[in-house]
Amino acid sequence: MWQTLYEELKDRNFIVIAVAMDSRADAARPWIEQAAPTYPALIDRDHRVSELYNMVNVPQAVWIDEEGRIVRPAENAGAFEAFRSLNFETMTVPEDKAATAVNAKTTYVAAVRDWVLTGSASAHAFDADQARAHTQAPSAETAQAHCHFRLGQHLLRQDRAGEGNEQLAEASRLHPTSWNIWRQAAEVNDMGLAAGPEFWARVNALGDDYYYPPVDMAGMPPPKTDE
């Protein structure tokens, strides 16, 4: 997904580290083999990066500078929830929603490019105060949820599925806004997607809340979830 941008900017002291929130490496493998990225494509079976950076969905991204400091904390990496306008009869989304999705992605990628080329002078690079203000700290329940998730994944790898799934359910109960935790544990369809009726019920239950929260970034199209 980031290969074109990486190829363009790899000689500008820039690297992409892609992390798959996938407890089953075999599920991520075909996607990675097809994309054939030349940057590191890592597998995070215990969702450690979600725990460390307090992430709740994919795609989310963090900008980290040359000194290892967070420039933009975890945020939606330019995804737009066009899928919420999916017409189930035609299996298409309205043209304007599809166009907005492309616009959001293009805007996000352009912002990354601007930061790589101009550093802290970029309008999209937060200063320390802005970066702290945009940081979302985990609650005690979220921290506890990650413990249950980790334990659950370990139990599943030991073929203790019943107990493992109980731990994953407890993780999701404690951290209900984490799509990463819920979808990892959910049933997947023939395409490997956790997009069955339960998923849509959860999405519809969002109401006016976002699936992909808005990105605070100049030029981003205003996010809307209306039909």
Partner: peptide
């Protein structure tokens, strides 16, 4: 930390 000295886009995704 292997990549200290570079700007890093740490980007997540998933198969599901």
């Amino acid at each position: 930390s292997d990549h200290r000295g570079k700007k890093v886009l740490l980007a997540t995704w998933a198969s599901w």
